[in-house]
Design a binder for these strands. Structure first.
Length: 821
RNA sequence: GCCCUCGUGGCGGAAUGGCAGACGCGCUGGACUUAGGAUCCAGUAGGGAAACCUGUAGAGGUUCAAAUCCUCUCGAGGGCACCA
């Protein structure tokens, strides 16, 4: 005999078709009622989707469907982050155009996602590689150019030899390319930047608004990345009159500054070399420049450096201090020069030790008994010593006082420094948004006129992957007219970082077909901010910083009103198989297509939602998937049983208990979804209700059908196909299920009528008594019952106790042996 | 070194400061049977014959009561890092 399973294939196909025909997921107008914008990070169309991606969409879908049932006007869109290097690489390999490759993948993946029954409003689908989208990337670029937020600069930049393009700082992880993992080199190039550093403070401030709504982890990562330091700029004059400006967070240690260090790239580094030190100094500078960033930053190699022969004067006491050059000082942080305080900074200490420079302690510990090590720097705060008029002051106080004193003579000023660097956005690749700028010999750098946008990406370009912008090889693209003088001019041939595309796509969903503007600000005002954003944590310091920046610029352009674009963030864990993140390239991906074919979309959905809370990593388990399939089959069989059973009646006790369980389940599922996306426990509550129904003696009576109705209704956001089918077959109302509201529960029915009171003695469980709910709150009755129960077990207790109404009683004092004999 | 998150059965994981281990997986035994990757029933933290005892990484503390709060230690994962 073959086992009977429910026919998920035809059920799922049937309901997908019905939803599609009825446009069941069309976005309602947000004007009337509470809105809910549910957003998942949109995918890169790389091929087929696997369960790792799918988990993301399932989580979002539960929320979207739940909020719809709760009466919210829900926006739940999806699109394609469709520009990027993989398309170009695939094109080179397979002799297919990046556009065709990408569009084909979109087609396949859209089908995969639809097969999961995710409630997306496909009318709002966008793809960033299409001109109607990237036109607005260009428009924003010009706006930012006009505001001075897009600029060109020659500097040392990250270069990935494998991807043959430059990278932004955020895209270098551990010295390696975020995409391909190759070691990143430094190159001196002129490139386009977005001035994200202008927004450093606002990006930091905004994080305060997100506390408690974004994971602490992500907030901490962004804070670290922005890296704010408060301190002072201090001016040191050299003997020959040059001004060396240093940045320090410890102005209180100024009296202990016994030398200065310039980075090898510092503009004064060569100038300050005296005749005696010229040769050695220039050799050192050249050697430092030749080193890779990795080599330079390697701490293990120890400190190296060279004396310039010059001296500067410490502004606080006129002491003559030597000026050194060393590569442990970074050229692109602070001022590229430091005052070195070997007594109170470990790096300076090591340097001073090696080059035999004077070490003067200027901070003593607050508590004189505290041990001060002599083999390393004392980096804590304390009491000022060897610091003239500031002696005996606390170092914290001196920080402010010394800065204040020097400020009067213009020798210092308070200064805030950030670690964040400007966003390098140009790329030497083809499959991206052309940067809408023109170089005219006469008029210089000119933005393309808005009326001439978009600057179209040509259909085909000679793709070699050899590291020159492919667009530069196309004279028909390059040669153009100057927007200002109409003379011959040349176009910019670099394209934009694809992170530009994803920095504002959530706004385009609001008004995806607008040809006059990126979006209507009115739409932004009614839908923004995104109420719930869902995606992977790997974007904490890339996409999630860029898009926050972009949104603030957009707000400043008057096109949006909220400060932060994403009100709540959920970072879902990875799906792993054999401990490694699922991926096509690792060969451990479970394709959605296979799952849907083999066990159905609902089973796949239930498994990823039940096996683990969304934040956790989720290890794929075939056994677990089978368990989810089993659960759905049990529900299916229950629907048959209930439909076919003769209507009878159970004894009131049993039916009341079942009714209670149903109401408790409604409450629990409702709370679990709202309270931190506890989909796993919500589903386990549904399993419990099903278990209760299985044990119920009068299956088929009104109470059991009502309980089952609630079960199907609650199951709908998680497994929409099977619940829709059962709903129909059982003749439940209203129809269709997708129009039903989330069930309400009766608080009276949720409350237990009898309560088990826990009886503790000195905090340990000793007995339990079951009492009617009313009695369980009555102190006298509970104590009497408790003492009786204890004495039956041979335990006598003194009268001191702690009573928690309806819950427990804890006898506090000594347990006395009763007359056991 | 700094910052963040987290340590609970064989596994995934449950527990408004109030019965630790819900629910599921796996496993063990049984039932049914045209042997099946179906379904149903019972059991499943450790120790003990049992009453009981011990258990949430470890050590302290707060509390009538701690997996949960506080301090320290150890361990895991992640981010930043010669950032002055």
């Amino acid at each position: 005999m073959r086992a009977e399973f429910y026919d998920f294939k035809s059920v799922e196909a049937k309901w997908r078709k019905i939803w599609e025909e009825n446009k069941a997921f069309q976005t309602p107008s947000p004007a009337s009622g509470k809105k809910y914008y549910c957003l998942v990070m949109f995918p890169y169309p790389s091929g087929k989707i696997h369960m790792g991606h799918a988990r993301n969409y399932c989580i979002g879908d539960v929320l979207a469907r739940y909020k719809t049932m709760k009466g919210f006007k829900v926006l739940h869109p999806l699109g394609w982050d469709a520009f990027g290097l993989p398309a170009e690489n695939a094109a080179i390999q397979n002799k297919i155009s990046p556009r065709d490759w990408t569009e084909k993948n979109i087609l396949d993946m859209r089908e995969d996602i639809k097969s999961l029954g995710i409630s997306y409003d496909w009318d709002r689908e966008i793809a960033t590689c299409r001109p109607d989208y990237y036109k607005w990337n260009q428009w924003f670029f010009i706006k930012m150019f006009e505001k001075g937020l897009a600029y060109r600069k020659k500097s040392s930049v990250n270069w990935c030899a494998s991807c043959q393009t430059v990278l932004a700082n955020e895209q270098v992880h551990d010295g390696k390319c975020w995409r391909c993992g190759s070691v990143v080199a430094q190159k001196e190039l002129e490139q386009w930047f977005y001035k994200i550093t202008d927004y450093a403070e606002r990006l930091l401030d905004g994080l305060k608004l997100l506390e408690g709504k974004w994971p602490d982890e992500v907030i901490a990562m962004q804070r670290n990345w922005i890296g704010k330091s408060e301190g002072a700029q201090v001016h040191f004059k050299t003997e020959s009159g040059q001004d060396i400006v240093v940045f320090t967070t410890r102005p209180d240690t100024l009296f202990g500054a016994t030398f200065l260090v310039l980075s090898p790239e510092h503009p004064l580094a060569k100038e300050l070399l005296t005749a005696d030190h010229k040769a050695a100094g220039e050799k050192y500078i050249a050697a430092a420049r030749a080193k890779s960033r990795e080599e330079r930053l390697a701490v293990e190699k120890g400190k190296t450096g060279v004396f310039t022969g010059s001296y500067a004067l410490n502004p606080v006491n006129g002491a003559k201090v030597p000026v050194w050059i060393a590569d442990y000082v970074l050229s692109d942080y602070g001022t590229g020069a430091i005052m070195a305080v070997p007594a109170h900074d470990q790096r300076d200490f090591e340097f001073a030790l090696k080059f035999k420079i004077e070490i003067i302690p200027v901070i003593a510990p607050e508590n004189p008994a505290q041990f001060v090590p002599h083999d390393r720097a004392f980096e804590e705060t304390g009491v000022m010593v060897n610091s003239g008029e500031f002696n005996h002051m606390s170092s914290d106080e001196a920080k402010a006082q010394i800065t204040k004193k020097l400020e009067k003579t213009g020798q210092a000023k308070s200064q805030v420094t950030y670690r964040l660097r400007d966003w390098l956005l140009s790329r030497q690749r083809f499959w991206g948004t052309p940067i809408p700028m023109v170089y005219c010999a006469k008029c210089g750098l000119q933005p393309v006129k808005e009326s001439d946008l978009p600057v179209l990406l040509p259909i085909d370009a000679p793709l070699t992957g050899k590291g020159e912008s492919p667009l530069a090889q196309m004279p028909e693209f390059v040669n153009t007219k100057c927007p200002k003088c109409s003379g011959p001019a040349k176009r910019e041939t670099d394209t934009m970082d694809t992170f530009v595309d994803s920095s504002w796509y959530f706004l385009r969903y609001l008004d995806p077909k607008n040809e006059k503007a990126a979006f209507d600000p009115a739409a932004a005002n009614s839908w923004m901010p995104v109420d719930q954003y869902i995606g992977g944590i790997e974007h904490a310091c890339m996409h999630l910083i860029y898009s926050r920046f972009f949104h603030k610029v957009i707000k400043d352009l008057g096109m949006a009103s909220c400060e932060e674009p994403f009100d709540n963030l959920l970072t879902q864990g990875m799906v792993t198989l054999g401990g490694a993140a699922m991926s096509k390239s690792k060969g451990n991906a479970v394709p959605v297509e296979d799952m849907v074919e083999r066990l159905g979309a609902d089973t796949a959905r239930i498994f990823v939602l039940f096996a683990s809370p969304p934040k956790n990593q989720l290890e794929w388990s075939e056994d677990g998937v089978q368990g989810s399939f089993r659960f759905l089959n049990r529900i299916w069989r229950m629907s048959r049983t209930l439909a076919n059973a003769p209507a009878g009646a159970a004894e009131p006790k049993a039916s009341q208990a079942l009714q209670k369980k149903a109401h408790q389940t409604i409450k629990k599922v409702d709370e679990d979804i709202q309270r931190g996306f506890q989909f796993n426990t919500a589903i386990s509550a549904l399993m419990e209700l099903l278990n209760s129904l299985s044990d119920y003696p009068a299956q088929g009576d009104a109470v059991s059908k009502e309980a089952f109705r609630a079960l199907v209704l609650l199951l709908f956001p998680f497994a929409p196909h099977i619940s829709s089918e059962i709903w129909d077959e059982m003749g439940f109302a209203p129809k269709p299920l997708s129009s039903a509201e989330f069930p309400a529960y009766d608080e009276k029915l949720v409350q237990e009528t009898v309560v088990e009171i826990v009886i503790q003695v000195a905090g340990k469980l000793r007995a339990k008594v079951t009492l009617p709910a009313g009695d369980a709150k009555d102190e006298k009755k509970v104590i009497a019952a408790a003492q009786k129960a204890l004495s039956e077990r041979g335990i006598a207790v003194e009268s001191k106790y702690k009573f928690v109404p309806g819950r427990l009683v804890n006898f506090i004092v000594t347990q006395v042996e009763a007359n056991k004999s």
